[in-house]
Design a protein around this nucleic acid. Structure first.
Lengths: 106, 106
DNA sequence: AAGGAATATTCCCGTCAAGGAATGTTCGGG
DNA sequence: CCCGAACATTCCTTGACGGGAATATTCCTT
C-alpha cells in the first residue's frame, strides 16, 4: 500500500477536492469556487493529488480539467480487504457467541 | 471521512505497525523488534495511532499490548464505497462498450 | 526498598508542508 | 499583435512532524 496516497488525502482541502471530483471532472476555477479556495492554493493541491496519481489533467484551451483516477483508491481498497476480513471475522465470532448465549437461555 | 486517519497512515512506520497488528495484538517491544525501530520511536508512533483511534492499549504488568480498532478503517471503507460505485460504474460501461464491439464483429 | 524491564514523555534539531503574494505561462478572441 | 482569462510556479514565512538522546514512570521480582 502506497503511503503517498494517504499523504495526499491527509489534508482537508485535498480530501474535499477528491470528494468534489467524484461527481464529475471540473476545471481549476470551479473547484476553487466551490470550495472557497484561492486559485494558486487550489493549483498546488491539485498538483499534489496528481503526483500521487489520484487525478489526471486534461487541457482544454486555457483550462485544465481535472478528473479522478481510480487506481490508487483501488489499491487502498485492496489493502483494506485484509482488514475487512479481520473485522468481519471478529463480528462472525461475536455473532456466534451471542447466538450461543441465546440458546442457553432457552 | 476523518483526515486524522489518513494522517496517521501517511507515515511508513505507522502503516507497517498497522499491518503488523493485523495478525495479532503485540506489546511495544515486539513491534519495535519486528520493524527494527527504536523503542521511543515506536512508542511515539503508537501514540499517534492511538490518538487517531486506530489502536487501543491494554496494560499487562509493565507491558502495553496494542491492538487494532476497526472503526476508523470501517469509516474509510464506507467513504471508499462511493468511489467504488463510481469506478465500478465506469467498468460496467466499458464492459458494455466492449460487448457491443464484439457483436459488431459477427 | 532497590533494581531491572518495559514503556512513555520531553527536549532539541532538521526537514517538510501549507498558505499568501507575486509573477510567469498558455490559449483564445478581438 | 495585444489583452484578458485561466492556471502553474516561485519565493518567503510559519507551523508541523519525525528521529535521536535523555529522562521519567510503572510494574514485578528479589
Amino acid at each position: 500500500m502506497n503511503v503517498q496516497t494517504f499523504s495526499a488525502l491527509a489534508e482537508p482541502n485535498r480530501l474535499a477536492i477528491v470528494d468534489l471530483l467524484l461527481d464529475e471532472p471540473l476545471p481549476v476555477g470551479e473547484i476553487a469556487g466551490k470550495l472557497n479556495l484561492n486559485q494558486p492554493q487550489t493549483s498546488k493541491h491539485l498538483r499534489v493529488l496528481s503526483e500521487a496519481g489520484l487525478v489526471e489533467v486534461q487541457p482544454l484551451a486555457n483550462r485544465r480539467i481535472y478528473k479522478l483516477r481510480p487506481e490508487p483508491l483501488q489499491e487502498m481498497d485492496k489493502w483494506l480487504d485484509s482488514h475487512r476480513r479481520m473485522w468481519e471475522s471478529r463480528m462472525d465470532r461475536l455473532e456466534g457467541y451471542l447466538n450461543s448465549l441465546k440458546e442457553k437461555k432457552h
